[in-house]
């Protein structure tokens, strides 16, 4: 049943070079969650519809649940676990907590990764740009209002206020 060519692969995740055995039919999400124990990225829809599995690869948010893990050797992968700096929450994470942008929290890591990638490219996004950037991430709890506020608040504290 197991795939015939499981390979030892080096994945660069959150700055660490992690070596792990990956089967060709393993998604990046499975490799991260079950192989490397990085359970912060979530699985919500199985097939790229909800965005809960979003991780950032070479600066761009991608859906790890429909990505084949072996294809990511040599790429720079950032997950929610890699966003905190020096053990302190990133201003974006802090803003999400302060504004109540995380309710059940299940979509939150994916949304944070999309927002994190946005702020690195655009430090002072408009409300519309935020909504566009997060349009591939479904949230079922908040109605998005507090998420928008949190991203704006983070942009402000990072010095990118409009």
């Amino acid at each position: 049943m197991e795939s015939t060519t499981t390979a030892v692969c080096r994945l660069r995740v959150n700055g660490d070079l992690r070596e792990c055995a990956i089967a060709p039919n393993s998604t990046l999400l499975e490799a991260l969650r079950y192989g490397l124990g990085l359970t912060g990225s979530k699985q919500g829809c199985d097939k790229g519809d909800c965005g809960a599995c979003t991780v950032v690869v070479d600066g761009e948010p991608v859906l790890s649940c429909i990505s084949l893990a072996l294809a990511f050797e040599g790429r720079e992968i950032t997950t929610i676990e890699g966003v905190s700096e020096g053990g302190k929450p990133h201003p974006l994470q802090d803003a999400f907590d302060l504004t109540g942008a995380a309710q059940c929290g299940f979509c939150t890591p994916g949304i944070l990764m999309s927002a994190w990638a946005l702020l690195r490219k655009n430090p002072s996004p408009s409300r519309d740009e935020i909504a566009q950037a997060l349009s591939g991430n479904l949230c079922r709890c908040t109605g998005y209002t507090k998420i928008f506020e949190a991203v704006e608040r983070a942009a402000e504290s990072l010095g990118g206020a409009r």
Partner: peptide, 8 residues
């Protein structure tokens, strides 16, 4: 539990 959720 807010910070636990936002840090994964």
């Amino acid at each position: 539990e807010g910070l636990a959720k936002v840090t994964g």
